[in-house]
Computed example of a mutant assay.
Amino acid sequence: MIELDGVSKIYKTGAVELRALDSVNLTIADGDLVAIMGPSGSGKSTMMNILGCLDVPSEGRYRLDGIDVGRLRDNRLADIRNTRIGFVFQSFNLIPRTSAARNVELPLIYAGVGGRARRTRARAALERVGLGERIRHMPNELSGGQQQRVAIARALVTEPTMILADEPTGNLDSVSTVEIMRLLVELNDAGRTVLLITHEDEVAAFAKRVVRLRDGRIVSDVRQERVGVSG
């Protein structure tokens, strides 16, 4: 369960104060698939950073499964990021000249998992995203859609309860966009909470719920009939 209670994020430069988020209240249940939308400067990236424990609120509380994240030390925040949250980014963030399998293993290396277990879990994650035959391929040997699948496998390999996807289809063509969104829907249907940061209505159409931000505030929060999944 995700709870934002009066959350604000304030950046100060001298006497100038910018409220990137302004008294946001939001609850997201386990197993939901939510698209967070808004124009540039609306606060959606700031919200992503707070939800992903990459930053903490200036005001208000962020509770993740009842834990007040703002009260945690940096090492505990890092542990939550590495074990409970899987991140997927627009730019894939894969390491060049490193195989798909080794890219997927990285979070497990940081977690201190042994070599044999890492390889087994990385292979299973790549098979889960349909790339079991590409484990030895380098990123430059994969299409954009395949690279994003590797990134999703890397996000899955620690078995997180939540996936945060920041513009996950921003660098993909329309066919790959649908493939990636169907994969995220499958992961959601299997029980994972999925949060999407997107500016594309076509991507948000795959969500169960759409939250729109403007000037750091939520201006609409609508549950919808999910479209574009079958076929």
Rank of each mutant, 00 (worst) to 15 (best):
I2F: 11
L4F: 14
D5V: 12
D5Y: 04
D5K: 14
V7K: 07
K9G: 05
V16Y: 14
V16K: 15
L18E: 10
D30T: 13
D32K: 01
A35M: 07
S45E: 09
S45Y: 05
M47A: 11
M48N: 08
Y62I: 11
D65L: 09
D68A: 08
V69Y: 09
G70W: 04
R76D: 14
R81A: 06
N82L: 11
R84N: 06
G86I: 00
G86D: 00
V88I: 15
Q90E: 10
N93Y: 15
L94F: 02
T98M: 15
T98I: 11
E105F: 12
L106M: 15
L106Q: 00
L106W: 02
I109N: 08
A111Q: 14
V113C: 13
R116K: 15
T120L: 13
R121P: 08
A122T: 12
R123S: 11
A124E: 15
A125M: 13
E127A: 15
H137E: 10
Q148L: 02
A153W: 00
P160K: 03
M162L: 15
I163S: 09
I163K: 05
L164Y: 01
N171A: 15
D173W: 10
D173N: 09
E186R: 15
L187V: 08
N188W: 01
D189L: 13
A190I: 06
L195G: 06
L195D: 08
L196C: 05
H199W: 03
V203Y: 04
A204M: 12
R209H: 07
L213P: 01
L213E: 05
R214N: 05
R214Q: 13
D215Q: 15
R217Y: 02
D221L: 12
V222Q: 14
R223E: 10
E225N: 09
S230F: 11
S230I: 07
